[in-house]
Amino acid sequence: MNDMTVKTIYTPEPPRALQAKPPKITAQDVNVYYGDKHAIKGLSITIPDKAVSAFIGPSGCGKSTFLRCINRMNDTIAGCRVTGKITVDGYDIHDRDLDVVQLRARVGMVFQKPNPFPKSIFENVAYGPRIHGLSKDKTDLERIVVESLKKAGLFEEVKDRLAAPGTGLSGGQQQRLCIARAIAVNPEIILMDEPCSALDPIATARIEELIHELKQNYCIVIVTHSMQQAARVSDLTAFFHLGNLIEVGDTDVMFTSPQDKKTQDYITGRFG
């Protein structure tokens, strides 16, 4: 295909996480171009359901770019082109009949910087259910909002001020609000793009705890800069380097005995 394509190493072959859990997302020979820049080079991967998969790698390695392919957020960037096949539950997300709006309802996303809408806490969470028509009436909507806030572990902190603006919360609370907003539309997959990079250690610990709880019900994919975080929260780890997927494996195995020299160097902190 592409002479730059690097063959991905599996550690072990096949990883236990993929044997234990059914596959949720698959990618086959995915290439992403930003104008002339070849950002992802012939990537193939399978991501398990009801587990946490972490994408790690140095800056500019393509991990966030690939994450944004899964809910087709790259569509919103002018000059970005994606080739190859990505499936969710076996369904091709680039299929002409697929509605990207509905895809995104099934694949939620949490961003690097908390981005609550400049509305009340309640309205932030109610936004998704409203546009997708998920609630029958007002009480139903309230139920969804409260449940989502509870799932995101934020309800106890904000239950008395649901009408207060979401932007008034602390950074960590804002990020949990964004998680609540994402799960309010009842997605199956949650993509997290460095969700803790703008947070302090205590808020980070809180989010990591939450990720651990959420993986019982959701397929979670997290991009992270922190190797410790990947080691703490994920079942499967994928290492990206310069647009190539170098190595994929069970987290515990990969962090103790990586196969590839680059993975080893990155994990031991020799570059990054």
Binding site: R104, M109, F111, H132, A182, V185
Partner: peptide, 17 residues
């Protein structure tokens, strides 16, 4: 900020929404 738009698109909102 674009991040607000991204947040909305990621929820499955259309452009006009």
């Amino acid at each position: 900020p674009q991040s607000l738009r991204d947040g909305s698109y990621a929820m499955g909102a259309t452009k006009s929404e």
